[in-house]
Design a protein around this nucleic acid. Sequence first.
DNA 1: AGTAATAAGATGATATTTATCCTGTTTGTG
DNA 2: CACAAACAGGATAAATATCATCTTATTACT
Lengths: 140, 140
Amino acid sequence: MQLTRQSEYAIRTMLELSMLPEGEFMQSRTIAARQELPEQFLNKTVQILARSGLVETRRGMQGGIRLTVKPGEITIADVVAAVEGKIALNPCLADGYHCANQPACRVHGILKRAQAAMLAELGKETFAELAGEDENRITS
Amino acid sequence: MQLTRQSEYAIRTMLELSMLPEGEFMQSRTIAARQELPEQFLNKTVQILARSGLVETRRGMQGGIRLTVKPGEITIADVVAAVEGKIALNPCLADGYHCANQPACRVHGILKRAQAAMLAELGKETFAELAGEDENRITS
DNA sequence: AGTAATAAGATGATATTTATCCTGTTTGTG
DNA sequence: CACAAACAGGATAAATATCATCTTATTACT
C-alpha cells in the first residue's frame, strides 16, 4: 500500500530535471549524488522514464538526461503511472480480472472511487509548480 | 501500491459478519468456505481484527467470530487501517520519519493529500450499507 | 472425557523490491 | 584513432514482504 522506492526516485529525478533550464542535460551521477540515491539503480529507473517518453537520454561526454515534456505539463500521477504501470488498488480493479459474483465484490465500487480520488490528487500539481515552490520554500 | 490480500480477506470477513443477525457468531471455516479463502491464513487475519477490537472470537463448540461494532459504524477504511497498520503512501509520510531538507520533499504535501483523499473515499460507506446493497445487488 | 473451535509459534514457499556487477554501446575530445 | 565519459541492459544476488501451512496449544460446550 505504498509507492515503491523506484517511484520515489523517479519523482525526485523528474523534479531535479524540472529545475534545469529547458533542454539542458543532467547526468544520472549528479542526480544520484544530489538526491543520495544508488546510481545504478537510478539508471534503471531512468530507463523506464525514457521508455515512457517522459525523458530523453544521451550517451557519451556531455550526455545525460533531460525532459522531453514541459514541467508544466506533467504531474506526479504521470510519473507513478510510468513506473508502476497501471495502478490497481486491488486485483479486483486490475485489467482482465472478472469479479466473482460474491458479496465481497460490493467493495469494488468503493475501491475504484478511492483510487480515482487518489490519482486525481496526484494529478493536481505539475512539476513546474513543484519546482517553483522549491525556490522559496518554507520549512515544512 | 496495492492492498494486500490479507486486507481483502479482512474486508470480506467483515462483510460476511455484517450480514449476520446482530450478536451471532460465524465460524472461520464457514467464512473461508463461502469466500474461498485459505482457512488457516484467514485465522491469522481474524486474530488481527480481534486485536483491533473490530471482532470478537469464541473458542470451542458454537464458537466463532462476531462483530463487536455495529456494521453501520465501520467502513473499509477502518478495516484496512487495522490490517495494514498506519498507512503511508511513502516513507516520507510515515511516523517518525524526518524529511531531509531536499527539493524532492516538496512532494510530501501532495502525497499526503492524495492519501487523505483515498482514505476519505474508503470511509464513505459503512458495512451496513455494503451488506445492504448486497441483498438486491445488480450485476456490475 | 471428548469434540469442536480458535490461538499462536515455527517454518517454508513465493514473489517483489532493491541493489550491484559486468559488459556493451554511444559520443565527444585530444 | 584512442580514450574517457556516460547511458544500456543482462545476470544475479540480497533483502523484504507476502502468502500459506503445519503443529501444538487453549477454550468451551456436551
